[in-house]
Design a protein around this nucleic acid. Sequence first.
DNA 1: GGAGGAAACGGACACTGTGCCCGATTGGTG
DNA 2: CACCAATCGGGCACAGTGTCCGTTTCCTCC
Lengths: 196, 196
Amino acid sequence: MVPPKTSTTAAATKPLRVDARRNYEGLLAAGRIVFAQAGADAPFDDVAREAGVGRGTLYRHFPTREHLFAAIIQDRVDLLEIRARELLQAPDAWEAVAEWLRLFDRIATAYGGMSARVARGLAESGSPVAAACTPMKTAFRRLFARAQKEGRVRSDVTSTQVLTMVGSLPKHPHSGDTIRPYLDIVLSGLKPPSEG
Amino acid sequence: MVPPKTSTTAAATKPLRVDARRNYEGLLAAGRIVFAQAGADAPFDDVAREAGVGRGTLYRHFPTREHLFAAIIQDRVDLLEIRARELLQAPDAWEAVAEWLRLFDRIATAYGGMSARVARGLAESGSPVAAACTPMKTAFRRLFARAQKEGRVRSDVTSTQVLTMVGSLPKHPHSGDTIRPYLDIVLSGLKPPSEG
DNA sequence: GGAGGAAACGGACACTGTGCCCGATTGGTG
DNA sequence: CACCAATCGGGCACAGTGTCCGTTTCCTCC
């Protein structure tokens, strides 16, 4: 895993000592493992133990759980941003939005219970999650605005609200997949009243 | 506040001593106050302190936070059950479902953050919340089935899934109201593909 | 109306998770 | 290689949870 480059997490200011970078990457990997296995509410200490470092090290690199979340999802967020830019070229504006949201939903279920917390963080500016997601949000806003402009999406909802809503959809407790019809209902409901 | 009669919470087995009943009702009232003010994640102790009783008393009456939730929402749930039965007589099956869900959504926002926890408990059988909501769920299932039978609601979703979904909708952090378009999107998305 | 027993009370205790702090250690530099 | 700053990581204080048990209160029966 590559430590933050252009990201908003911590770097770009100073080169970081080699042991610090090693621990940073180890904590990131440990976070993925622990949260994937025990859910987003797993004891924060477990991450430090899994990484084989002390509590102090963990808290220095990631002051809060949300900071670690933000770092963990960074690569997925980058991916989603790229995809949103690509889909701006797609012929059907509505299908582009729908396809992107399906991808977003699939990715959001990677870590149990995390998508709900991320969805919450998306809204409140100032949160590390919101900072990490800003480029993605901007890219999706363009995609969404295009569909709205063409009248393919209802006009009384903002792109951020859609992200929050989809991120908050209930998930299967164990599989982690969104229960089938939930996303379909939202997608169908996003279409303007005129369209079926 | 009337202590549980036909409810599933604790009673109907033994008459409860007068001091026990007094404390039960005091804890219920305290729970409403504390959760309304500080949200559903407020320290459980605060409920005991607000009620002027010890921790032991609180935990004896309500072994878990969810047990207290179930008791607190009992009267709202009863109300919703009654309304669902009434709406079975309504001429328009779809409008009946929509109206009931709007009521459900409005009620679900009474205590900050509680609706999400209740929505989670709704799904997992065995939880006190699920037990308290069973009559309501049954009544809504009939209402929902009627609309589905008439082809006014998409057929690939169950009534329980709808309840879980609406209960999980993001809420305004402060006001507690569902952000406007969320419920509209779900309602619109529940209609079958043929209808606009 | 008072004595005995069961039920209920409520504070103390042990435990877990969190977040911070500071002495010890390690790495980079002249 | 020696020094200084950056980093490490264990220890500490604190808050929330849930349980246990000695004490108190209520109900019943005489």
